[in-house]
Each structure stands twice: as C-alpha cells, then as structure tokens.
C-alpha cells in the first residue's frame, strides 16, 4: 500500500491524530501548573491521549490531564487521576490517559517506545450550544506534587468528531 492508503486506513481505524510541538516539561508539569495543550472545537470522542518523553525526565512531578471549556465557560475537570512520579522516565516512555472513568490513574508503565494504549472506553468531550455553535474548550496538561526540573515531552491526541465541524488542534 502507498503511504496515503496507510494513513487513510489508520485514520478510519484509529481516529484523527494531532500532536503538539516538542515541549519543555518544565513549562507544563510544574507543581501548580495548568496549560492548554489541545484546543477542542465542538463535541469529540476522545480515543487516545498521551505524552511521549523525548528527553529524560527529572523532578518528581505527578501529572494528569483535564478538560476545560472557555465558550461557554465550564470549570476545569480532571479526565484522569495523577500518575506516580515521572522522575525516572526516559526517552521513549509514555504517560498514557487510561480512559474508562475520570478516576483512572495516568499510566506510566512500559518501557521505552513500548507502552500500553488507552484500555478503557473513550470519553465524549465538549458539546454544542443551544444556538448550534460548537463549544470551544481545551485539554490541559497539569502538574502536581513537585516540579519537573528537566526533560521534554510531545503530546498526542487521537479523536473522532461527534458534531458537525468538530475538531482538535494542538495549542502549543
């Protein structure tokens, strides 16, 4: 198969995919940090969400992910529970949103470039207003407990639109 067929088949099987830039963990996983990494337009089915370590981590941060809506305003709510310390993660490790329920713990098991994927059911995020306009919200990367003091990470979001014109874009 040529590359376009592989990509199209993957989109249909897995969902649409977008990635952030390669980010400094010290900008996103500070103790009291919350930063929007993906902008969500409309109603989506979230299928996969993970951060792939691209430079060894330092600092005992315990991150998680959350959803927040800006239009209309809906308070930020966690979509998983914080992981254990990421201090020992090395390049190729992933921090993986577990799906299922918001009580599921962010997964950091696995070895470099070999990790579990989302094992739970997907979440429906966002919505559509009474006027029929897609809500605008964001998926945030949140730190807790301690600051990340070194390391890089790139976040990936895989989704399917659930309202007309819904999509996700990296915010950073």
């Amino acid at each position: 198969m040529n590359k376009s067929i592989i990509e199209a088949t993957s989109d249909h099987h897995r969902g649409l995919l977008c990635e952030t830039a390669n980010l400094e963990a010290t900008d996103y996983w500070l103790t009291a940090d919350t930063a929007t990494i993906f902008t969500v337009y409309g109603r989506i089915l979230l299928l996969e969400l993970y951060g792939e370590i691209t430079e060894n981590m330092a600092g005992a941060a315990q991150p998680n992910f959350a959803y927040v809506s800006t239009t209309p305003v809906i308070a930020k709510a966690d979509i998983c529970a914080v992981s254990a310390s990421i201090a020992g993660l090395v390049t190729g490790n992933r921090v993986v949103w577990p799906g299922g329920t918001t009580g599921g713990t962010l997964v950091i098991t696995g070895i470099a470039y070999d990790s579990p994927a989302n094992a739970g059911v997907g979440f429906i995020l966002g919505g559509v207003t009474a006027a029929g306009v897609n809500m605008i919200g964001g998926i945030t990367a949140d730190g807790s407990v301690a600051d990340a003091t070194d390391g890089n990470v790139r976040f990936t979001c895989v989704y399917a639109p659930m309202s007309t014109g819904a999509y996700v874009r990296p915010a950073v």
């Binding site: 959803y67 809906i74 709510a77 059911v121 997907g122 979440f123 429906i124």
Partner: peptide, 11 residues
Amino acid sequence: GPSAGISYLPA
C-alpha cells in the same frame, strides 16, 4: 457526567 462537557462512551 461525570461533569459538564465530559461524559463516558456507553456500551
């Protein structure tokens, strides 16, 4: 739920 803007995909 579990909250506004977030819900689970059912069986």
